[in-house]
């Protein structure tokens, strides 16, 4: 079977495993919408202004993809690696890219499902608005720009044990979400923080998605930055996967 075919096989069974644990599905799908209802909806100043509201919805969608990447991949992988099934899969023929790709695709599918209620709530209860072409462009770009988060999850899951992965993921998620301007809009940042933030893949993802949703020009620095992050993290993921020997005794 081709690597692409095998990637889809891995995607299918990853999704099946997730779907059979309903509470995990609910957590992934409900969490971003819930956060939006609690933190964004009460702020009349944000929700009544079309520009601010669109930015807020876009930021929360970026957050949904980021947390799916960090949590689903980082924690699941760390957990799987501590059990003998993951080493067993590595003894099968087939490219390692198929397994990495399968986990990535399954996570993107789950995050895309989580985006739907978020867009509905944002569309109905705020003045956020985007013409269809801009909306579709933003959705396409949020999926593409989620790849670095997924790779960060992959790196955490491949290097940390299950307990350590929980701690690392929580810290990483908080720092990246705050530093990336998902909790506070970057216009409120002091200059030094704004500059530092521009080097984070999450900030770059946010700028790209927000610009696409608002129909603004996408900043070049964000595009270059996120391509660089994807290349570096992708290489790191493959190197770590090849070097990984699982637990010492299986």
């Amino acid at each position: 079977m081709s690597t692409l075919g095998l990637t889809l096989v891995h995607t299918k069974y990853n999704l099946l495993e997730t779907l059979r644990v309903p509470i995990a599905v609910i957590g992934t799908v409900v969490f971003p919408t819930l956060a939006f209802c609690l933190f964004v909806l009460p702020q009349r100043m944000v929700t009544s202004d079309p520009g601010f509201a669109t930015q807020a919805v876009a930021s929360m969608v970026v957050f949904a993809y980021m947390s799916a990447g960090l949590f689903s991949i980082g924690l699941d992988l760390a957990e799987q690696r501590s059990k003998p099934w993951a080493p067993y899969l590595r003894t099968l023929p087939g490219s390692p890219a198929a397994r990495i790709g399968g986990i990535l695709l399954a996570t993107l599918v789950a995050a895309t499902v989580a985006m739907v209620p978020l867009l509905i709530v944002g569309g109905l209860f705020t003045s956020a608005t985007a013409p269809l072409p801009q909306l579709l462009a933003a959705i396409g770009l949020v999926i593409l720009t989620a790849i670095p988060s997924a790779l960060i999850g992959f790196v955490i899951g491949t290097t940390a044990g299950p307990k350590a992965a929980i701690a690392i993921t929580q810290v990483a998620m908080f720092l990246l979400a705050f530093g990336g301007g998902l909790f506070l809009p970057p216009v409120l940042f002091p200059d030094w923080l704004d500059l530092a933030s521009k080097f984070l893949p999450i900030r770059q993802a946010r700028e790209i998605v927000v610009a696409a949703a608002l129909g603004d020009a996408i900043p070049l620095w964000a595009v270059l930055g996120i391509i660089a992050w994807t290349a570096v993290l992708g290489t790191l993921a493959v190197v770590l996967y090849r070097r990984d020997e699982g637990r010492r005794y299986r």
Partner: peptide
């Protein structure tokens, strides 16, 4: 390609 091996008994994915 022509190698077969076994996972440990407890290793099968529980929900599949």
């Amino acid at each position: 390609l022509r190698l077969g091996s076994t996972p440990q008994a407890t290793a099968l994915p529980e929900s599949l």
